[in-house]
């Protein structure tokens, strides 16, 4: 099995607030795996996604991140995207004046670094849109402008499928979605998933996980992973809640 992502002892703070969020986090993801990061609010889940993507609003104070054998700790976000990582945003930006179609083509061309065959590409996009129950006329709408919460999330999954990364990080993609939309998203993940790529799902609920083959579940508390296990850990969290599990850990120590 190939080591895809390796996070070593990462420390991160939010630049504007000057507040330490991640306090020595380690995580290794091999190709072919689905990892789930869970944890209570404010534990640092979204900071982790933004840290991997080197969002300038966050500052790494210690540690390093390797992807595909390359040090990407201080890499620019677009190069990270090009190297094969995709991140779905919790609140995708609205960009007026740029249509979804224009944007997808532009992103695809950048990530694949080759000229896109327009006909083939638009067929492919159409196909994915059908599978995600997105009306194909949506390609002419401005990127995320006036999209409902669900439409934005589905649009993120569409981008994941189109860009076909080696690693997809889905940050709270299930939040605010109804049951039908959650099923569409998890179908989208299954459609994407194969033996050579990986997914990190950041979530605070287990609804999305039902139809997925989850390999590992990690519990993130106060900037560190305090507990890792297999898919059954998610079920345990569902039943017992974070508080009991955290208490249990303290008692063991």
């Amino acid at each position: 099995m190939k080591k895809l992502l390796e996070i070593k002892n990462i420390h991160t703070k939010v630049r504007d607030l000057d507040k330490q969020i991640l306090k020595g986090l380690d995580l290794t993801v091999n190709s072919g795996e689905i990892h789930v990061i869970m944890g209570p609010n404010g534990a640092g889940k979204s900071t982790l996604a933004n840290t991997i993507f080197n969002n300038p609003e966050y500052e790494k104070t210690e540690g390093s991140i390797y992807f595909d054998g390359k040090d990407i700790t201080n890499e620019k976000v677009n190069n990270i995207a090009k190297s094969g990582i995709f991140m779905s945003f919790q609140t995708p930006e609205e960009i007026p004046g740029i249509t979804v179609a224009q944007f997808l083509k532009s992103a695809k061309q950048n990530v694949s670094e080759e000229k896109v065959n327009l006909y083939k590409f638009s067929k492919e996009v159409e196909d994915y849109m059908n599978k995600l129950s997105i009306p194909t006329k949506n390609t002419t709408r401005d990127l995320n402008v006036g999209f409902s919460g669900g439409e934005k999330k589905k649009n993120e999954i569409l981008q994941m499928l189109v860009l076909n990364p080696k690693l997809a990080i889905l940050d709270e993609t299930d939040s605010g979605l109804d049951v039908d939309a959650i099923n569409i998203v998890s179908n989208g993940i299954n459609l994407f998933k194969n033996d050579n790529n990986s997914v990190i799902i950041i979530t605070h609920s287990t609804k999305l996980l039902k139809n997925l083959n989850v390999d590992y579940v990690h519990v993130l508390v106060d900037g560190r992973i305090v507990l890792s296990g297999d898919a059954s850990l998610a079920t345990r969290i569902d039943k017992e809640g974070y508080k009991n599990i955290i208490e249990g850990l303290k008692n063991e120590n």
Partner: peptide
């Protein structure tokens, strides 16, 4: 908005 577009591979 710049970060979002860059996260999709645009310079």
């Amino acid at each position: 908005a710049i970060f979002y577009l860059m996260s999709r591979g645009l310079s």
